Computed example of a mutant assay.
Amino acid sequence: MGPGLYSDIGKKTRDLLNKDFNTDQKFTLTTYALNGAAITASSTMKNEAILGEIHTQLKQKNVTVDVKATSDSLLLTTFTLEGYGVPGLKKILTIPFPHQTAGKAEVQYLHDYAGITASFGLSSKPLVNLSGVFGNKAIAVGADVAYDTATGDFTKYNAGLSYTNTDLIAAVTLNNKGDSVTASYYHLVNPEKNTAVGAEVAHCLSRKESTVTFGAQHALDPSTTVKARYNSNGLTSALIQHEWRPKSFFTLSTEVDTKAFEKSPKVGLSLVLKP
């Protein structure tokens, strides 16, 4: 019921305009072991390359262990500890192999009037990231900064403001060290049909350039959803997603460059299977 984390500012609009729009071919299968561990195998064909990964997740009370192995020889292990005497507190430790120094420790704290995240790299001179959001479920303001202890410089400082109503969410963020401003809008038009519209305007101050993106979604029936988006660069995308059984989705998407019709449209397929 609180303001959430900094990453939640504008998330509803980003999901509407970006989530599930895919121009690759992707297959995902999830199964469950007898001890309750969820095992997910996925394969993505991107251009001429095939990328694969296996992800295992095991939950025991307040502890979650995630192990991910990718086709480029990376093993990523994440330990998540929630609660233990402090409601809303979450501790996360991520260890990659063979690049252990690229690991990260993170602490998240969610409150009715605040959401705070602090993280640092597991190296002698780590990158330290701190973000905070203050407010309530209606109005929230936050900031996100990163400090490189190796160079003594701030590599990132962003700020954001969001307003949330029953059916409307608006947000404004200042990113890229103050060089870009993004304003977003999300409106749930019909909750029964999951009909929503949204827009995002991103303006770069140094280049004096703006990109405008519009999007909409609508549920044709309880298991089938269509989405579409268009941006000022001429890219038009559309998708249809069907949930043919609980938590199992088939998604067909396409993207067309309206400023270069001589180019072939891109088509993406995604199949997600869960028993």
Rank of each mutant, 00 (worst) to 15 (best):
A38K: 14
T80A: 04
K11H: 10
T28Y: 05
V63D: 05
A69S: 05
Q60N: 04
E53K: 15
Y109P: 02
T78Y: 05
V107I: 13
V63K: 11
K90F: 02
N47S: 11
T13D: 04
L122N: 01
A118S: 01
T56H: 09
K91R: 02
E53M: 13
T40G: 06
A33I: 10
A102F: 04
N35E: 10
T64A: 06
P96H: 01
L93Q: 00
I95N: 00
D112H: 01
K68F: 00
T44Y: 04
G83T: 09
T101W: 01
I9D: 10
T23S: 15
P87W: 03
T56R: 13
K91N: 02
S73D: 11
I9P: 08
E106S: 02
H55F: 12
T13K: 07
F27E: 04
D66Y: 08
L122M: 06
G103R: 11
Y32G: 04
T40W: 13
L75H: 02
I9R: 14
S124Q: 07
L93W: 05
K68C: 04
S119K: 09
P96N: 01
L122S: 00
T44G: 03
G103I: 08
H99D: 07
Y109K: 03
D72H: 08
G88E: 09
D24N: 15
E82P: 08
K68V: 07
L51C: 02
G52Y: 07
K59C: 03
G103H: 07
H55Y: 05
D20S: 10
A41H: 11
T28I: 12
T117H: 01
T30H: 06
D72I: 12
I50M: 13
I95G: 01
G103S: 05
G10Q: 13
D66W: 10
T64D: 02
T117G: 00
L122D: 00
T64F: 06
K26H: 09
Q108I: 12
E106D: 00
T40D: 05
K19G: 06
Q25C: 06
N62D: 07
Y84S: 01
